[in-house]
Design a protein around this nucleic acid. Structure first.
Length: 404
RNA sequence: GCGUGGGUGGCGGAGCGGUCAAUCGCACCUGACUGUAAAUCAGGCGCCCUAGCGGCUACGGGGGUUCGAAUCCCUCCCCACGCACCA
């Protein structure tokens, strides 16, 4: 973080509030953070997808802040729990992962994690290490810590129960396992998304049940994706930190205007005051939301690809979308020379999924060759060694030329 | 095991004998406009072609009734709920 002159109190205050919706023992945690005690800060990650998206970085960035304050981050890889399936904020059951998938996902994960947190000082634990060893008697014992009524207090269990939608017993076990993780690693603090609040609280209940002191809880805001719904891999509205600079930049530009402030708050280090000003200026019309988004996009892309790449991505965006120029890098495709129908060419180059949709694209005026609109779906295109740029819509380009 | 209600396009969810390739919402695509790939508005959104009130394949699988079935019947598979059996 670039907060060099801030006092510790200010830093702690920001850690406790920025992008945070709920802190469970707020005063208690604040005191701890201001003391010199080194805390064990837990974050559970379910390696359910191979990529880390911006929504997940919110929590990771929070961890980073704790690291900077000198605390010990304990990352729990839910290799065991992922096999069970997490019911959080889902109205129906989640698919379970196989051990092979988990292992595969983790390989990619570490590389991505290191872009945000300091992995060398991080304790990485797999919860199968202790959960696998529990005997059935011990599980039964653990199950004693919760009543069915308490479980049903959880909103999404309650909703499903009321609607008559299946809740498997296995799902009831999930919060218990996550809570047991806290016991196993002796967590002082646990971080999680707001949708995880129930599970985080379960950690407290279970720690207490085992006669240990209860962890404090920091629940963070959920980040909306490009379409305004919660960012989630299964919705396909994610911005992955592995996305190429141009792609990442473009996705950020398509975020809804109302979310600009939230994105700045949750995914960048931009100072709180500056964010406030940006929001204010957008509201008053002094600042064009487009420019605020350019700023946001540059910030985020810089974090994952460096400032140079961010500048380049911005220049590319302005050139292509604001000025309508051709992008710098266009995919090139070589095909057989000769005459070919435009619709067939679109399918061949991957710009259209089927001839029917290619037909529609042309009819709707979305197809251009070297900038010139093609309006006849039957048009024959002559392909020879001279290349030309085939364009579908505003953002799909392919350079086509014939083989000799 | 018995009973009830279900299984429809990427998802949610209509339709319950015929213009149903299937209302609608979300997602997605194209266009207009703009401040950007925001918002808004318009159109599109199974596949094929000689592009047409065209052909083909589709509504869990299979079979049947009918001029005609996503819609009715039989059967199989799967899901949920309830009941029972067994402890």
């Amino acid at each position: 973080m670039r907060s060099s002159k801030k006092s510790k109190t200010d830093i702690v205050e920001e850690v406790l509030t920025r992008g945070v919706t709920e802190v469970v023992d707020r005063e208690h945690l604040k005191k701890l953070l201001l003391s010199n005690k080194k805390l064990r800060v837990k974050l559970g990650i379910d390696p359910t997808g191979p990529r880390i998206h911006l929504g997940r970085t919110v929590l990771l960035r929070k961890l980073r802040a704790f690291q900077e304050l000198g605390h010990k981050v304990v990352l729990i890889v839910g290799d065991f729990t992922a096999l069970i399936g997490d019911p959080s904020d889902k109205l129906s059951k989640r698919p379970r992962l196989t051990p092979a998938q988990v292992a595969d996902n983790m390989r990619n994960y570490k590389k991505q994690l290191s872009k945000i947190i300091d992995l060398s000082s991080t304790e990485l634990r797999y919860n199968s290490a202790w959960l696998k060893k529990l005997s059935f008697a011990q599980v039964t014992e653990l199950a004693e810590s919760f009543s069915v009524q308490q479980m049903l207090a959880r909103r999404n269990f309650k909703d499903r129960y009321d609607k008559g939608v299946d809740i498997s017993l296995r799902e009831f076990l999930y919060p218990l396992m996550q809570g047991y993780d806290s016991v196993a690693i002796k967590a002082d603090v646990e971080i999680g998304g707001f949708d995880q609040l129930f599970n985080l609280m379960a950690g407290r209940t279970i720690q207490k049940y085992y006669g240990e002191k209860e962890q404090d809880i920091l629940a963070c805001e959920m980040l909306e994706g490009t379409d305004g719904r919660k960012m989630s891999t299964s919705w396909g509205n994610v911005i992955n930190i592995t996305d190429e600079p141009n792609d990442m930049f473009g996705k950020l530009m398509s975020v809804r205007d109302e979310l600009i402030g939230k994105y700045l708050l949750l995914t960048t280090d931009v100072a709180l005051e500056k964010i406030k000003n940006i929001e204010k200026d957008i509201k008053s019309g002094k600042l064009n939301p487009r420019d605020a988004k350019l700023f946001l996009s540059r910030e985020v892309v810089s974090i994952y690809h460096g400032e140079k790449a961010a500048e380049k991505a911005e220049a590319n965006f302005i050139s292509v979308f604001q000025k309508g120029n051709l992008p710098e890098e266009i995919k090139e495709i070589k095909t057989n020379s000769g005459k070919i129908e435009i619709t067939e060419l679109l399918v061949k180059t991957g710009l259209a999924a089927s001839k029917g949709s290619a037909f529609r694209l042309v009819e709707q005026g979305g197809v251009r060759i070297d900038g010139e609109k093609i309006d006849d779906p039957k048009k024959l295109i002559n392909i020879n060694s001279n290349s030309f740029v085939l364009q579908s819509g505003k953002r799909n380009f392919v350079k086509v030329s014939g083989k000799k």
